[in-house]
Design a protein around this nucleic acid. Structure first.
Lengths: 214, 214
DNA sequence: CAATCTATCTATTGATCTATAGAATCCGGC
DNA sequence: GCCGGATTCTATAGATCAATAGATAGATTG
């Protein structure tokens, strides 16, 4: 979202200005550093000093950019979860079979690991440490996301494409669990790349490991 | 400061054994409390004070039972992973089909959640914060465990029971990922019970979500 | 009863961490 | 070349935390 906002009617004299782009870029650098540290050492294991070290500034200077460590975590988590819902909704809205949707959902879930790994990891592993208010915000987004997946599964069952005894919620949790764990080991003495994993995981979900696989 | 060695010669045969059972029971209570706190708040989020509070003793008193917080984490993690290897090996050694073995592996992995949930959770989520030496010990056990799973998958492929293109390592990671996530939500506003989840998850792995399911 | 052992306590140290206050510096536009 | 806001710094308060040292109460033993 980058709509450059025009000054509302009464911004009185002073012009809101050219520094805005720089400001925004720096903000994002700060958040990148926070995400990196949170993802690597966990929220409580990470100190604001660690974040400052990455940026080459003093620890106290960080507080120019966020009012508390908890808020920094909230922002990182929000950036980690944002996009999941939209991407999934897009897949779910397509005119394709439920199987193809499941495949798309897996791909969409793993894709952000390519360009926002630290944010996603932090969202997945550290959101539990958010203060209640923040947790609610983040929880709202992730629950909406899960509902999209569940609905795809239910449709698949209703249409007869998926097995009848399947529990949609449990199935969703299985999908999320498989994908979540990928964040933990991808790019770590592993030869695997994201698209390959998405392909194989989607296939396991759809056909199992048996020979039936299409 | 640890007594690297016992008094050389004079260990004196007389056994003051009577206290041993109580001693051991207390040790285990201490570890239970540590596991509970580590599982709930994470290693860095948990203070030794929190552990002491559960037990109703003073924080400093804990150090009668373990020499450092890190060692407490090591012990909890070891208790969390121990048994996995044996249980899996047992399943793998049976004279049953590879499919039945996979089902048994899932059940064996989820079973400890019934009676050692806090230890297993801590092992799964906090082992990354172990100091290098401890991490190596724990890593050794868990890698051996993973190898057992991988081997079962490879056998299934070799025997033609499983699909040929399957990557055994990736398949193992998928199984572990699915099961790991269960620890995070089981018994939390969920109607699901462990055996039910094991049943469904094994089925998803074996037959996928398609109608093919046995 | 005396000696020893076990388990816990009190008291404290030093390190580390988040956050605040206010001063200094940088930089673009005039 | 100076002004004003943007950005970073210094210094420090205040809290918490892991860990150590030494004392002590209660049980066990001899």
């Amino acid at each position: 979202m980058k709509t450059r906002r025009k000054p509302e009617l009464q911004v009185v004299g002073t012009s809101p200005r050219a520094s805005a782009p720089n400001q925004r870029r720096r903000q994002s650098e700060i958040l990148d550093a926070a995400a990196k540290v949170f993802a690597q050492r966990g929220y409580y294991g990470a100190s604001t000093q660690d974040i400052a070290d990455i940026l080459g500034i003093k620890q106290a200077s960080l507080y120019y950019y966020f009012p508390s460590k908890e808020i920094a975590l909230e922002r990182v988590c929000l950036k980690g979860v944002e996009g999941f819902f939209e991407a999934a909704s897009e897949v779910a809205a397509k005119k394709i079979t439920a199987s193809e949707k499941v495949r798309g959902l897996v791909e969409a879930h793993l894709a952000p690991l390519l360009d926002r790994a630290d944010f996603v990891k932090t969202f997945l592993n550290e959101r539990q440490y958010l203060p209640p208010v923040s947790r609610k915000k983040v929880g709202k987004l992730s629950r909406a996301y899960e509902k999209v997946i569940e609905k795809v599964v239910m449709e698949g069952i209703a249409s007869g494409e998926f097995r009848k005894g399947l529990d949609p919620r449990l199935m969703t949790l299985a999908l999320l669990g498989m994908c979540k764990s990928v964040a933990a080991w991808i790019g770590k003495e592993n030869p695997y790349k994201v698209p390959e994993v998405a392909e194989q995981y989607a296939r396991i979900l759809l056909a199992g490991i048996g020979k039936a696989g299409r």
